[in-house]
Nucleic acid binder design. Structure first.
Lengths: 336, 336
DNA sequence: TCGAATTAAGAAAACGTTTTCTCAGTAGAC
DNA sequence: GTCTACTGAGAAAACGTTTTCTTAATTCGA
């Protein structure tokens, strides 16, 4: 089996205490000469301490749990990479948890992460019935948590967000300025907070422009391609929309498919605005006008927040960071 | 702090041994009545054993390391999901390691995973200088490993693959059958084994059709969009290719961009074939003809293989599984 | 009814670290 | 020269489990 601290101690002719001291760069209780001797043996044998045993006593695992709906969603893989990059810089590793936004899976993972003693969690799932349950769990076990993208009870946790209302307002405004007055809206599920916030922005822009809104132009999709496709198909067939605002790019992709199927030309017959600015919408034709959000950076900032919380024990201080969004006007929108 | 087995023992009025026995469903040394009593206390207090302490003695962590270049690459996020799904079914969790195919990062992660005592690893990175180093590391620490997508010294490990040569042969044949004789080839880096295998298939098809190959039509890209874009631009500007075979879809995406930039129409001016059949190539126009490989399933099978190896100690038996590929003919290829 | 076999249960060791406590030796102060 | 303070080092406890070993109590066979 692997070498242990005991083996190293024996080889160096010192106690395991001394080896531990050099391992942890302690200066007290050890002379420079024995430190060097031990260091040499460690080096020679490529010894690395067993993280499990270490965790046993230090109570930290240098691991953080990442709870997301689905890593295949490019939004979350981008986010995950941002997270992993800053985590690994501080020698933390990340445990991947795909929940499909499912109550059962989320709870299961919460327990798992607790059993495995993760030092903290980044949470990007939400479910109405869940909020309470997750909340009590987290508070009860007081695990550091940072919320991302979709908040649960916001003021209770640190989190990294964008101003969803403002972003949606800007996107809608863009369409209104292009003289569209019948703007279909493809929202995400209503239990996801950002959906409602974006909806607010959508309304606000209409109000400001004195354009009446029409409930029948608002549909809810699943935040994936198929969701956008379904909603778009309905809207395009059953209503007189001249523009469509999808609350994420994935759904906007679905809009493109629906439009094509119905023989509608973008942007001539129908203008389309997305949300996220995923890398892969470069593939679209015509290029998608969309509201960019700094996904990777959200992951970075969230992780920094979490590590701060973990390492400085700041789990009581709640910090919300808001990052900027930016409307990227491309070819999918046009004056009516 | 959290409850420990000691607390439960005290509350139930039994020894920790007994609690441990019910925790692990041991039948010996415990009567049904005390089992029930203990079970009730456990239930009541929602006690879960500390996985770290458990690992300490059982020597397993129910964790597997996933080493990939970049989770943002849809190929790998799809793979990761397949892996996570079957892993979590068996109560294993996965530790995410993005290496960017970088020597330093791979080695660092290897050590990390060893320190953390993962039960096994799924490995999808390769690097020529690395093979030896990774190999000796893995063998030295005898950690169960399953290779995926890109082999290192193949016969040494279990792995899940496709028949790259055959797949590339089929793809090339498709183009040859459409009377293309000047077929550009955008390969992946030559240190990645599948690139060379696919190249073989490319050659073989030409040979079979009696069409001479031309080294100048073969370029190497990075297996990402930009790689495909660069290579395609060169090929389209400097040579007389009438068709392009990109060794993955991401590069094929780049080909589309290059073609557009040069004002070339697909498939009229240039036929394009990709590889992978990523979900997002539904966004492309015209739709991409590509060689499908069952990415998610590769992840599933790889994990099953790994778990088998872990749980049945079959790390000596080497098993290679080959999954099928399928040419999906869509709109990006056309008779010359 | 007695010894053997079986069962239920607990005590203690073990896992590989870090941390606390103790101690011997030496330097410094007077 | 003695006492105090400090330094380098090790012994042992601790972390929360599982596992091995031991023991007490019960059942069983004759």
């Amino acid at each position: 089996m692997s070498l242990t601290i005991k083996d190293i101690a024996k080889m160096a002719g010192v106690s395991i205490t001394s080896v531990s001291r050099v391992l942890n760069n302690k200066t007290e209780g050890i002379s420079e000469s024995t430190r060097q001797r031990v260091l040499k043996i460690i080096e020679q044998h490529n010894y690395r301490p067993n993280a499990i045993a270490r965790s046993m006593i230090t109570k930290n695992t240098k691991t953080i749990g990442l709870i997301i709906p689905d890593i295949r969603n490019p939004f979350f893989s981008d986010l995950a990479r941002g997270i992993e990059d800053v985590a690994s810089e501080s020698k933390y590793s990340i445990l991947l948890c795909n929940t499909d936004s499912t109550l059962g899976k989320i709870i299961d993972y919460l327990w798992l992460l607790k059993e495995k003693n993760v030092d903290g969690m980044i949470f990007a799932c939400s479910d109405p019935t869940l909020n309470r349950e997750v909340h009590t769990f987290v508070k009860q076990n007081n695990i550091p948590v940072v919320i991302v993208d979709r908040g649960l009870e916001d003021q209770m946790y640190s989190g990294v967000f964008i101003d969803n209302e403002k972003a949606a307002y800007m996107a809608t405004k863009h369409l209104l300025e292009l003289s569209h007055t019948r703007i279909g809206c493809i929202s995400g599920p209503s239990f996801i907070k950002n959906s409602n916030e974006r909806l607010e922005g959508y309304f606000k822009a209409h109000q400001e422009f004195g354009v009446p809104t029409d409930k029948s132009l608002i549909r809810v999709g699943e935040y994936v391609m198929e969701g956008g496709y379904q909603a778009a198909k309905e809207l395009l067939e059953q209503t007189d929309v001249t523009a469509l605002f999808a609350f994420n790019d994935l759904m906007a992709f679905g809009v493109y498919q629906a439009a094509e199927e119905l023989g509608l030309k973008i942007p001539d017959d129908i203008s389309v605005v997305g949300f996220d600015n995923l890398k892969y919408n470069l593939l679209l034709h015509p290029k998608l006008t969309t509201m960019e959000q700094p996904i990777y950076e959200i992951g970075e900032v969230a992780t920094k927040l979490l590590l701060e919380q973990i390492e400085e024990g700041k789990s009581d201080q709640i910090k919300s960071v808001f990052l900027d969004t930016k409307l990227i006007v491309r070819e999918s929108t046009k004056k009516r």
